[in-house]
Simulated assay, not measured.
Amino acid sequence: MTENTTPLADKGAIVTGSSRGIGAVTAGILARQGAGVVVNYRQKAPRANKVVAGIEAEGGRAVAVQGDLTSEEGRQAIVAAAVEAFGHVDVLVLNASGGMEADMGEDYALRLNRDAQVAMLDAALPHMPSGARVVFVTSHQAHFIESHPTLDAYEPVARSKKAGENALRDRLGELEAKGISLVVVSGDMIEGTVTATLLNRAEPGAIEARREAAGRLYSVEEFGAEVAAMATADVPTGHTEYVGGAGHFGVAE
């Protein structure tokens, strides 16, 4: 029996923060698996358009949609585009995160990494059929923050992302009643991401030290593939998929 290479045929997907990096890789893979994908961006339209063009060049379906997750207008625009183009939202990848930006206000990390994640789910839920899946992307440094300290520069982000994960997990019963599953993907520091760059700038040598402790760090492409895999993986709701370096945090790999 041959493996189905288009498990998401006729499905609609939203990948937040997907104009570059992990989100862009995830969007591309979901499109190759048959999904129509909303490529979401906050400011940089040319980058998002390039991701869409790449998907379309491979015969896939995608639309670029501007939307700030911290605004109701932005969230509604993202969902409306998905429904108009693809009919429904079968996969919601909550990838967008931040909080180390210096010009977004002291509470930005919590507004984006907790409040906006839950609000994005709420915006999409009316259009998510039974069998749909939510994938929340986080880091080991956030997922394990309650038991393992992290870099000072990253701690506010880590705590806000953990708060976001907890808030989503609080909805597990409600989601399960609707036939919708939630999967968390937790990864170590990822080579080449904005967060890793900012952390290394704030605490020089941080990436090299983490690489040495973990043995190796995943690339953006490798981690994006792991995130995309969880859109269709046969795992129970509430499952956490650990990607690289989790042994340092006491998790067997």
Rank of each mutant, 00 (worst) to 15 (best):
Y41N: 04
G28K: 05
S139I: 01
M104D: 05
P129Q: 08
A233H: 10
G34Y: 07
H140C: 11
G247L: 02
R114M: 03
R47P: 05
T6L: 10
P129Y: 07
L198Y: 02
A158Q: 04
P204N: 04
K44Q: 14
A214V: 06
A213Y: 06
G87D: 09
F86K: 05
A27K: 03
E203K: 07
F144P: 00
V243G: 02
A96N: 05
R42S: 13
R114Y: 03
D90R: 04
V38P: 03
G54T: 11
I190K: 09
G238K: 05
R211K: 15
A123V: 09
H148W: 15
V38I: 15
T2W: 09
G164L: 06
A225W: 09
R171V: 10
K178I: 06
G59K: 12
E212S: 14
K50Q: 15
D107L: 13
A96P: 09
Q117A: 08
R210W: 04
E165D: 12
N40V: 14
A225P: 06
R47T: 15
P149C: 05
K50C: 11
A206K: 06
G34K: 05
T70Q: 10
I55D: 13
G87E: 08
M100L: 14
A64I: 00
N4V: 11
A167I: 12
F249A: 02
V25N: 10
G179V: 13
A80V: 01
A124W: 12
N49V: 00
Q76Y: 00
D68I: 00
A225R: 14
